[in-house]
Design a binder for these strands. Structure first.
Length: 478
RNA sequence: CGGGGUGUAGCGCAGUUGGCAGCGCACCGCGUUUGGGACGCGGGGGUCGACGGUUCAAGUCCGUCCACCCCGACCA
């Protein structure tokens, strides 16, 4: 249990992040280097993320399935760019049952290969398409440097893998799923995200085109918070996913893959958190409303608790609530405790409230007295619903205002060098690998995405001055 | 994998010239408390990261190793 002040974001953002994750009991370090334990409170948030996304996947025609976590090494090697991209970070099983394996098994870093193999078995006709499968799974990438939720050796995610008869349909799917992610981020997580295309160097190993949504964290660094890949026929050719079309011509299928991981928990923490701790978006928060009874004496308790029970009874039909009836800690302690844990709305019920026939509400997104108001006892659920909606909107607005204040339009390269130290640059770029590499080398800022919404006209590359057709976000990233 | 740092109770740390392993918080018990991190009294809890060496004696000195954190390179 937390007992002292957090390191502030201004003092040390990384340290703040670690302390919040640990003290709010989202996660803990594990005995295995680079792996984390996701604790019940953190997992509950992830479950809400899962439900929110799964609903969208189902609504767009997808179904869930489960594929093995072990993949024959030879599968990875079938797609050249894929194996080159992933081989440095593979965990490989060489022994099983006390015997050396004939062929090593890779612990999946992602499942395009094994799913591609299965698709080749299942898809024979245009009538079999599209195949729209998602799986919720854990994957392993042997990263050098890890950070809770943001980069761990093992992480949880969903990976959608689809196969289509035409290029256009597969490209449309790639975009559709990114739209779903953006809708989820904005509507449920209150995170303003920018969707766009990845540069050639930043794209997924084996993809023709990758798109991502990028979010700005509280330290103005960028976090890629979901990706969607148009794989063309690369994996279809590597795994022989072929079908007969309506004209009886054998065709390779067009495939996509898209994913969002537990990293998104980190995005929520770093987008909304403040010096008091977590600030969780109401739609995803494990606990949406915490009720703190305030009772000085036994007499107070017998007066307060029936009202608390009544309020809890009314609200629990509509919200995820928690009654904090601990007697061993003071109300002040509880206030700080639930603020650390990011509960969006706190209701305080004490003798003074009961005398006036009200409850006191405290909004997590507005610290201190300004966030407090009194609610009348009638239509309480409706008032709470309205407050939660307002909290969501104000969290989004605040995050968006912060983001926009940290996106710059540098006049020249010297200016870009400066602005990417404390924000993002939105600049014209000629599209060349060389300029991108130089900027990265000299500023640590990488291209995040080429947003779908482009300004009119053309410009000149911020680095080389050559004509440029598109603007790109440059930023330091997690 | 390069650079830096840290390993002593669950957490944060102190431990002087080598000489009985300590403090604060947390935890347990009792009592008083409770509208923004309560207080008193009494308790429990330790292979001092590991291994080896020096010494009458090592948390402390020497060596080797390990783990974790931070900064880089790489990455969702």
């Amino acid at each position: 249990m937390a007992d002292e002040k957090l390191t502030t974001q201004a003092e040390n953002f990384s340290e703040w992040y670690n302390q919040v994750v640990l003290r709010a009991e989202m996660a803990d370090y594990s005995p295995v280097r680079g792996c984390m334990v996701i604790r019940p409170y953190g997992w509950s948030l992830w479950e809400n993320i899962q439900q929110s996304l799964d609903r969208r996947f189902k609504a767009t025609g997808h179904v869930n399935a489960a594929f093995p976590m072990f993949i024959p090494m030879s599968f990875l090697e079938k797609e050249k760019e894929h194996v080159e991209g992933f081989s440095p970070e593979l965990a490989v099983v060489t022994h099983g049952g006390g015997q050396k394996l004939e062929e090593p098994l890779v612990v999946r870093p992602t499942s395009e290969t094994i799913i591609g193999y299965m698709y080749s078995q299942w898809i024979k006709s245009y009538r079999d398409l599209p195949v729209l499968i998602n799986q919720w799974a854990n994957v392993v990438r042997w990263e050098m440097r890890t950070r809770l939720f943001l980069r761990t050796l093992e992480f949880y995610w969903q990976e959608g893998h689809t196969a289509h008869a035409t290029e256009a349909e597969a490209r449309e799917e790639t975009r559709r799923m990114m739209d779903q992610y953006c809708n989820f981020a904005i509507e449920d997580a209150a995170i303003p995200v920018i969707p766009g295309r990845k540069s050639e160097t930043e794209k997924f190993a084996g993809a023709i085109e990758s798109i991502s949504m990028e979010a700005m964290m509280g330290d103005a660094k960028a976090l890629q918070s979901a990706t969607s890949h148009f794989l063309g026929q690369n994996f279809a050719k590597a795994f022989d996913i072929k079908f007969l079309d309506q004209s009886n011509i054998l065709q390779y299928a067009w495939t996509t893959s898209w994913g969002l991981s537990t990293r998104f928990v980190g995005a929520i923490i770093m987008t909304h958190g403040d010096d008091q701790g977590l600030v969780l978006p109401p739609k995803l928060a494990p606990i949406q409303v915490v009720i703190v009874p305030i009772a000085r004496s036994d007499a107070d308790r017998s007066k307060v608790m029936p009202v608390v029970e009544q309020v809890a009874g009314e609200l629990q039909a509509h919200f995820r609530i928690k009654v904090d009836d601990r007697t061993e800690v003071t109300p002040g302690f509880k206030f700080n405790d639930w603020e650390l844990r990011g509960v969006p709305l706190r209701l305080e019920i004490g003798p003074k409230d009961i005398d006036k026939g009200v409850v006191t509400a405290a909004r997590r997104d507005i610290p201190g007295r300004d966030g407090k108001s009194t609610l009348s006892m009638d239509q309480l659920a409706a008032q709470v619903a309205e407050l939660l909606t307002e909290i969501h909107a104000s969290m989004y607005d605040k995050a968006e205002a912060f983001r926009d204040a940290h996106i710059h339009d540098p006049k020249d390269y010297d200016a870009l060098k400066e602005v990417v130290q404390e924000g993002w640059a939105f600049s014209w770029w000629c599209g060349s690998r060389e300029c991108e590499a130089k900027i990265k080398e000299e500023t640590k800022a990488t291209t995040r995405c080429i947003p779908f919404h482009q300004p009119e006209g053309e410009g000149r590359c911020i680095y080389c001055g050559q004509p440029a057709k598109e603007r790109v976000y440059f930023a330091r990233a997690y």
